[in-house]
């Protein structure tokens, strides 16, 4: 009994539930990355499996590389979004909300641009999707990439919209980056998760850029 936790009063209950919510966002973000990693692993497995097995000697016939410049711009868009996001998040925590809003708007723009360029790249292919294992895997990659880039962009856009909406209410407390109100704390937890997710997407973008355009 000596190590039994103390009973909670009403205020402590509210704080306990708020901590639960913050912890839930932390766990959810890491778990989301695990889920997405396993989804990407299906693409990576297909890539290496078909490349290794290559039953019809059709892994990658000549002239089946998708437009490299567009592919590179897509990856750069995601990496740029992650970098700007990572640069802006500490500024928000220092109370520089306007800076963060501007930088995050750029991240949203880069995310939309990257997804748009990925779609455009699919319209500029010089090969038929089913001519080889490589082209098939590329088409599969591109579809998933669009979905995850849009998902990441959606997340950061909702944070942006939330910050703009919360800003007047939290101004007296230093804005969403400094306020101790529950809404601000949950916002920061979500922002931390979102930043983490964008870093992850940047790593994925670079890895698949290497697989499809360099290797």
């Amino acid at each position: 009994m000596s190590d039994a936790p103390a009973a909670l009063d009403v205020h402590a209950e509210a704080e306990f539930e708020l901590q639960n919510a913050e912890g839930a966002i932390w766990t959810a973000t890491r778990l989301l990355i695990g889920i997405v990693t396993f989804a990407w692993s299906a693409v990576a497995f297909a890539y290496f499996y078909l490349r290794a097995v290559d039953p019809a000697q059709l892994w990658r016939p000549h002239g089946t590389t998708p437009p490299v410049l567009l592919g590179t711009l897509v990856a750069l868009g995601v990496v740029g979004g992650a970098l700007i996001n990572a640069y802006a998040a500490p500024r928000l925590r220092r109370g520089e909300t306007a800076d963060w809003i501007f930088a995050t708007s750029v991240t949203v723009g880069l995310g939309l641009l990257a997804a748009g360029l990925q779609v455009w790249q699919l319209t500029r292919l010089s090969f038929f999707p089913g001519v080889s294992g490589y082209t098939s895997v590329f088409i599969g990659f591109a579809g998933l990439n669009i979905a995850f880039i849009l998902g990441g962009t959606y997340w950061v856009e909702t944070l942006l919209a939330r910050a703009i909406r919360l800003r007047p209410a939290l101004a007296a407390e230093g804005g969403p980056g400094l306020s101790t109100l529950p809404a601000a704390r949950e916002f920061r937890a979500s922002l931390e998760g979102c930043t983490y997710f964008w870093w992850y997407m940047a790593i994925i973008s670079v890895l698949f850029w290497f697989l499809f355009y360099v290797l």
Binding site: F38, A42, P129, G133, S136, G143
Partner: peptide, 30 residues
């Protein structure tokens, strides 16, 4: 485990719609 299967059925749907060849041996799939 499920995301991997999600990927598999996604590949299957691509094979049947946009004519990729993930599972078509004659075209470089397996």
């Amino acid at each position: 485990a499920t995301p991997v299967f999600f990927g598999a059925v996604y590949f299957g749907a691509l094979d049947r719609t946009v004519q990729t060849a993930f599972f078509v041996d004659a075209h470089g799939g397996s």
